[in-house]
Computed example of a mutant assay.
Amino acid sequence: MRISAAQRAENENRIRAVMDRLLRGEIPPGGKCDIKTLASESAVDRTAFYGTRPYPHLRVEFEHRLQTLQQAGEIPDPREATIARLKTETTKLKERLSHSEQTIDELTDFRTQALARLATQHEEIVHLRAVAAGTETVTHLPNSRTVVIGSCS
């Protein structure tokens, strides 16, 4: 079915109005910032945006404007913005988890080495006490300390 020039102009105006709303972030419930939602909100068949149909130039314009906004760091679709934010947050959390696991591994190794050193030192102390107890050449010092006060000349 052919449409008149007036109908085509009216459809284009309606499509551009919906395009502006979508790119401002006014996404209808259950919709996205995409051609499917643009077509349904404009009451135009989606196939009209492809091939030799009447509105492929509007699809190209919409995609270009959407890409420009995304490159500027603006995401008009709140769902897409949430997805992007959650992906970034997930990446950061994975990095923190990896760092924490590395720290835990390092601390576990340190603990193992410290316990091994303490065990070795304890064995050395026990061995030295046994050696000291078995020899008579060790002189035990008295427990009380004698203080000598001298005179200075």
Rank of each mutant, 00 (worst) to 15 (best):
E89I: 02
H99E: 13
P142S: 06
Q121A: 04
R14E: 02
L58M: 12
Q67H: 11
E80A: 09
D34T: 07
R16P: 02
N143F: 15
E123A: 09
D45S: 15
R16M: 12
I27M: 09
V131D: 06
V147H: 15
E123G: 08
K94T: 13
P56E: 06
F110V: 06
N11K: 09
Q70T: 14
K32D: 09
I35C: 01
L23C: 07
T146P: 00
P28K: 04
A17T: 13
R59T: 03
I75F: 07
T88L: 10
V126G: 01
H64N: 02
M1Y: 14
T112W: 02
L69R: 11
K36P: 10
G73R: 06
G25V: 06
G150S: 13
N13E: 10
S151I: 15
R85E: 11
N143Q: 15
V131M: 09
P28Y: 12
S151V: 15
S4C: 05
A114W: 05
G30L: 05
V60T: 14
R145I: 13
E12T: 01
I83M: 11
V18C: 00
L128G: 07
I104W: 04
I15Y: 00
L86Q: 08
T112G: 01
A133W: 02
T68N: 09
T108D: 05
E123H: 04
S98E: 14
R117L: 00
I3K: 10
P54L: 00
F49H: 08
L66G: 01
T82M: 09
D77F: 00
G73Y: 11
P142G: 06
C152K: 15
A9I: 07
F62A: 02
N13M: 11
V44W: 13
L23N: 01
A43F: 12
L58N: 01
G150D: 14
V60G: 03
L69D: 02
T68S: 15
